[in-house]
C-alpha cells in the first residue's frame, strides 16, 4: 500500500480507475465574539478620532508649525547620531565582553564580569552626570610611567566634550546589558558546532567569530533591536551631561517658551515613532541576513549545471595533475 500522488490517476487493486473521493466541505465554527469585539473596537477608535479632531487643546496648528522646525530637525539628527554611536560602541564592547566571558583566560573572565557588574549596577543617569564631570575629577590626563616620568598629557575638558561624554555614558552602560544578551546568544549555539570546527583544526578565536557568533546572531538580534529602540529614548537623558541638542531637549525648550507642552509632546512622540519604525525595517533585514540556512532557506546562488560542470572540470584538472606527477 502506498500513498498516491494527487495528480496521478487513482487505481484500485484490480487496476480499474477508482472514483474521485468526495472532498469534505465542513461548516466552520462560528465566532460571534470576534465580530462583537471588532464592533466595540471600531466604535472606540471612531470616538478617539473624533476627539483628536474636535478637542481644541491638542492644538494641531502648533504641531504643524513645529513638526519641521529647524531645532526639531536638528534634534532628530543629534538623537539619531547619539543612538547610532552609542550602540556601535556598546555592540563592539559587548562582543568583546561576551568572548572574554567564555575565554580560557581567567583574567579576561573576571574583567568581563566586573565590567558588567559595575556598568549594569549603577544608574545610567548617574554615569552620564559622572562623565560630564570627569574633567572636574581629572582635569589633566597624562600618560607616563607610574611614579615615574610623564610622557605626554592633554586637558580632559578638550578631550571629553559634552557629545563625547554622552556617547561614552550611554555606550558603556549599554555594553553591560548587551554583553549579557550576546552571552546568552553564544550559549544558545549547539556545542557540536564548536567541536566540528575544532576537529577541522580551526583556532578558537576564528571559531567564535566565523562559526559561533553568526549563528548566535539569530538569537541576539531581536533583543538588541529592543535595546536600540530603548537607547533611542534613553538619549533624552543626556541632559544630565549636560548635552542639550537632542530631540527631547529641543521640543521641551519650545514647549517651555510657548507654554504649549501638549502639541510639542506630540511632535516628539511622532518623530520617535518614525525613527523607531525605520529601525524596525533595518532589524527585519538584519534578521533575514542572519536567518540564512535556518529561518531563511533561499538557496545560495550555485546553479546545478555550473556545479556539475565545475566538478567535472576540477576532476579533469586533478587527473591531469596526477598524470603529470607520475611522469
Amino acid at each position: 500500500m502506498s500513498i498516491q500522488a494527487p495528480d496521478l490517476p487513482a487505481t484500485d487493486r484490480s487496476g480499474h480507475a477508482a472514483p474521485a473521493p468526495e472532498l469534505i466541505n465542513a461548516v466552520p465554527v462560528r465566532h460571534p465574539g470576534r465580530w462583537l469585539g471588532a464592533v466595540v473596537l471600531f466604535l472606540f477608535l471612531a470616538q478617539l478620532c473624533q476627539s483628536l479632531v474636535t478637542n481644541p487643546n491638542f492644538r494641531w496648528d502648533i504641531v504643524g508649525t513645529y513638526i519641521m522646525d529647524v531645532l526639531v530637525i536638528q534634534g532628530i539628527g543629534w538623537t539619531l547620531l547619539l543612538t547610532v554611536l552609542s550602540m556601535v560602541l556598546a555592540v563592539s564592547l559587548a562582543i568583546l565582553l561576551a568572548f572574554m566571558r567564555q575565554s580560557d583566560n581567567p583574567l579576561f573572565r573576571y574583567v568581563s564580569w566586573f565590567w558588567v557588574w559595575f556598568f549594569r549596577g549603577t544608574p545610567v543617569y548617574t554615569q552620564l552626570v559622572l562623565w560630564g564631570l570627569v574633567s572636574v575629577l581629572y582635569p589633566k590626563i597624562s600618560v607616563g610611567v607610574p611614579f615615574g616620568p610623564e610622557l605626554f598629557h592633554f586637558s580632559t575638558q578638550d578631550l571629553v566634550t559634552a557629545g563625547f561624554a554622552a556617547v561614552l555614558g550611554l555606550g558603556l552602560n549599554e555594553s553591560a546589558y548587551l554583553a549579557e544578551i550576546f552571552r546568552a546568544g553564544l550559549k544558545s549555539v549547539d556545542g557540536g558546532q564548536m567541536e566540528a570546527a575544532e576537529a577541522l583544526g580551526m583556532r578558537k578565536s576564528k571559531i567564535m567569530w566565523r562559526i559561533i557568533l553568526p549563528q548566535a546572531m539569530r538569537v541576539i538580534v531581536p533583543p538588541t533591536g529592543n535595546e536600540t529602540i530603548g537607547m533611542l529614548k534613553t538619549t533624552s537623558l543626556v541632559l544630565a551631561v549636560p548635552f542639550t541638542l537632542d530631540l527631547t531637549f529641543a521640543t521641551n525648550g519650545i514647549a517651555n517658551r510657548t507654554y504649549l507642552p501638549i502639541p510639542l509632546l506630540i511632535v516628539a512622540a511622532f518623530w520617535y515613532l518614525v525613527i523607531t519604525s525605520l529601525l524596525m525595517v533595518g532589524q527585519f533585514y538584519i534578521e533575514r541576513h542572519f536567518g540564512k540556512g535556518v529561518d531563511n532557506l533561499v538557496q545560495a546562488p550555485v546553479k546545478a549545471s555550473q556545479t556539475a560542470a565545475a566538478a567535472r572540470a576540477a576532476k579533469g584538472a586533478h587527473a591531469r595533475k596526477e598524470e603529470g606527477e607520475e611522469l
Binding site: G192, E195, A199, P214, Q215, V294, V302
Partner: peptide, 14 residues
C-alpha cells in the same frame, strides 16, 4: 560526528 554538526548558516559548499 553522529549528529553531523554541519554549520547550519553555510551551504554545503561553504
Amino acid at each position: 560526528f553522529q549528529r553531523f554538526n554541519l554549520f547550519p548558516h553555510k551551504t554545503a559548499v561553504q
